[in-house]
Simulated assay, not measured.
Amino acid sequence: MAGLKYDKVRFMVSPGSTVRITLENVDEMMHNMLIVKPETRVSVVKAAETMGERGVEHDFIPKSSNVLESTPLLGPGGQASILFKVPDKETVYPYVCTYPAHGMVMYGAIYATRSPDDLPPLDEDPNIPEQVRNQMAASMSLHPYPRDMPTLTRLFMPESSPAAIAVGMEKEQSYNWDAGYSFLRYVWDGGYIDVANQWDGKAHEVAKIKGDIYYRNTTGFPFRVSHQDSVPQHEFQGYRMIDGYPRFKYDMGDITVSELILPAQTTPGFRIEYVLENVDQPIWYALSDNDEIRVEVSKGTIEGDMVKLTPDQAQEFTISIISEE
């Protein structure tokens, strides 16, 4: 967070879930964050403005039933978290900074929804600040990357071999899959890529990520065959599009792996659906070391930093990775 804006102007949650939201003030001014009831942002901001001199000692949080959760005022370098129990109703919950003169420009929206495809495009979203909508509209007109998701682009990506594949998913999630090494490199939240230079005769340039990386592969090729120290030789065999998403295929010896990466229901987060053919030995799957990440497996058992699967379990399983920041 810097200037009169939050670094994320909207995000999605599942109705009935509980989410932790951490606010870190990297600005030179004081800020807070209030989550308020639908369509009450302006009234809460006006109530905070009437607090006058006594506002600071109360963190400019007005006494109002419209305020659902809040952080205190944070000075430069300050940090605070909110645990928000999302009601079961599908709706939009605004969040806002109520420090004087901030509330009319510094706000965002929590979409509690079971239908993420129904979100409006960022440049048309009435629940985020107008200046952000205008910036998005200008960016889209200047940088011709695809707006419709999912989408796929083969180009040079940071921290990757020349065979990188960028995939923009729904729910503002994107990832980089390295076909040169047959594994996922990293996943980010908040946008896709700025590839304007790809249309300017500079195809050798490295693309810029639009958003924040929250997951990095720290283990390399994740599979082990027979025992947890045995990394198999592997070879990329291409991909096939499934409803707009690539299903990657690669061999590791006699075993054929199909890998499909999709956004998780709770974001930021994603899931990897694996199908393995010709498995007759135990399979180990190495988990990467990332802070504030929750890992869930559909089959097998987690033993330390590995998932152990029997040959039967390894034929079809899912790894889900959810950011808890």
Rank of each mutant, 00 (worst) to 15 (best):
S320A: 15
L155G: 02
P144E: 03
W284Q: 03
K46F: 10
D148Y: 04
V132W: 07
L73E: 13
M241G: 07
G238D: 10
D291W: 08
F84Y: 15
R271L: 15
V45C: 05
G238L: 05
L23R: 07
L23F: 11
A47M: 14
D229W: 11
I302P: 11
A47L: 13
F156D: 01
E130Y: 13
D59Q: 09
M33N: 01
R10Q: 09
S174D: 07
P126M: 09
H31N: 15
V187Q: 03
G16S: 05
L262R: 15
H58D: 11
V297H: 11
P129G: 00
S14V: 14
A203C: 00
Y274F: 15
M157W: 11
V167Q: 04
D148N: 10
I35N: 04
F221N: 06
D194E: 10
R294L: 12
G103K: 02
Q281W: 00
G300F: 11
R147T: 14
S43D: 14
T22H: 05
E49T: 03
R294Q: 13
K299C: 01
N25F: 00
E324W: 04
G304S: 05
E316A: 15
L262T: 13
M12W: 02
D59K: 01
P129R: 02
D291R: 15
D117E: 12
D243V: 03
A163M: 13
L142P: 05
R240I: 06
V45M: 08
T219M: 07
Y107M: 05
V44C: 04
K37E: 12
V56F: 15
C97P: 05
G220R: 04
F11T: 13
V36W: 08
D27N: 08
S14K: 13
Y99A: 01
K308Y: 04
K299D: 11
G103R: 04
D59E: 09
S14N: 12
L309H: 13
G52L: 08
G77T: 11
R216D: 00
E57P: 00
I322Q: 07
G244F: 00
S115Y: 12
A179F: 07
P38G: 06
M104E: 14
M140D: 05
M33Q: 01
E28P: 00
S161Y: 03
D251T: 13
P144F: 03
P158C: 02
T18Q: 10
E39W: 14
D243Y: 12
S323G: 15
